[in-house]
Simulated scan of single mutants.
Amino acid sequence: MTLPTHTRAAVLRAHGEPLVIEEIPLPERIEPGAALVRIDCATLCATDVHLWSGAMSFPGMLPLVLGHEMAGTVLAVGEGTVDALGRPVAVGSRIGWSEATCGFCHGCTVLRTPVACENRGYGFLQRSDRPPYATNGLAEHAYVTPRAQKYLLPADVDSRWAAAAGCAVKTVLHAFDRAGGTRPGSSVVIQGAGALGIVATAVAKAGGAGPVITIGGPRHRLDLAAEFGADLVLGLEDGPEARKEAVLAATGGRGADLVIDLAGAPGVGAEAVDLAAWGGTFVVCGTTGPAPQPLPLGTVMGKELTVRGSLNGDVGDYHRAISFLSAFRHHYDWDELFSEPVGLSGATGAIEAMHRLEQTKAVVDPRLA
């Protein structure tokens, strides 16, 4: 089989501008432990939207191929390529993958926490004009680097689900892990009704929590949150005081045992602390960027709250995400999260639609026109 030397990709060259369809190089050699993959689909994440708009930016990042949630079919492998569980990765295997970790820094060896890797390789740190060029999902092919944490996908997990598991679902599961999980009957407030918030709603409900309260918008996303287990949904138009009254009424006047920020909107931290019950936990997961956010420390102290940060997730969370999607595939209609797939030429429109909150989870299939 003759391997491709270049791949067609949708390249971000200027923030807020349409993606440019280009041919970019692929590595000439597949390294030991690496793989060349044909992208079956990519799902777009809020981070992709922030990168496109410039809300999340850093010097020298462009040009860039977006799309760090993806699944694909292996076209070629280097010597000794195995997945995170030691299973051989072969031509024809369907895989997903998590970020690369170095294995030798303080985070990897002392803390033994992949999320803390000092040399962690995110796809959106890879410029498309430098080797290995194509490592993200808005392309027909991707080069999966030797230290990327690969995972063989089970047949009962759709490629769209597996792609979303690579960031959105594993991020949610990591946040619940940081919170110490949930107990049956514990009250949970989910701030945010995007894909992460809806998945978090499903995770909380599946764990026996109740009431599960999801806050966000627009209305079609809240309707979806209700389908995925929310006992109560509260819109942003209600205002913080009305939302607080509703949460207190739903929790017997105590507030929520667990509040998870998956929105990152201004004021979300102060509201989370206000909604939390005495002795409750607040997990910060959705807030990005350098702008400071106010947090009433007196309330944190007075309620003896636990506040935890949660960054993203690692290959262990990815494994659990795949398992969760598979185990609950007959309980939740995961397909409801995703929009109709578009090809690379439609990727800009898909990002713009997510920016306008019109879609929950956009899907790009590079095999389409």
Rank of each mutant, 00 (worst) to 15 (best):
A148G: 12
G103Y: 03
P292L: 04
M1H: 09
A230F: 07
I351S: 09
T47C: 14
S53Q: 08
E140I: 09
P294Q: 13
A209R: 05
R178A: 06
E304G: 01
H15K: 01
V169E: 10
A175G: 13
R356M: 03
G298R: 03
A134L: 04
P63I: 00
T113R: 07
A256F: 13
R183T: 15
G264Q: 14
T171V: 05
H141A: 07
E358M: 01
P366G: 11
S93C: 02
V172M: 05
D317N: 06
P59R: 09
G86V: 10
E17G: 02
V364F: 13
P341H: 14
H68Y: 02
G33T: 06
E23F: 07
P240Q: 08
Y318N: 04
V82W: 06
L357A: 12
E31P: 14
A35V: 10
S98V: 05
D257R: 13
D317F: 00
Y122L: 01
T73W: 00
A162L: 11
G316Y: 12
T201A: 11
A263M: 08
R160H: 11
G180W: 05
G229M: 08
L125P: 01
G194N: 01
T306R: 14
A139G: 14
I215S: 03
G86R: 12
G343Y: 01
E79K: 06
H174K: 09
A230S: 13
E237Y: 05
P218A: 00
P63L: 00
F124M: 03
R183K: 13
P4E: 06
F176W: 10
A76T: 00
D48H: 07
L64T: 00
R8H: 13
T288K: 12
A71K: 04
L224R: 09
G181M: 03
V110Y: 06
V37L: 05
R320W: 01
D177S: 03
G180T: 08
L125T: 10
V89F: 03
S339Y: 08
V259P: 14
R160G: 08
R147T: 13
R38P: 04
L152N: 08
S53G: 11
D335W: 05
A84W: 14
P63Q: 00
K361T: 01
P25L: 06
E22M: 03
D156Y: 02
I30S: 02
Y332F: 15
Y332V: 12
S98P: 00
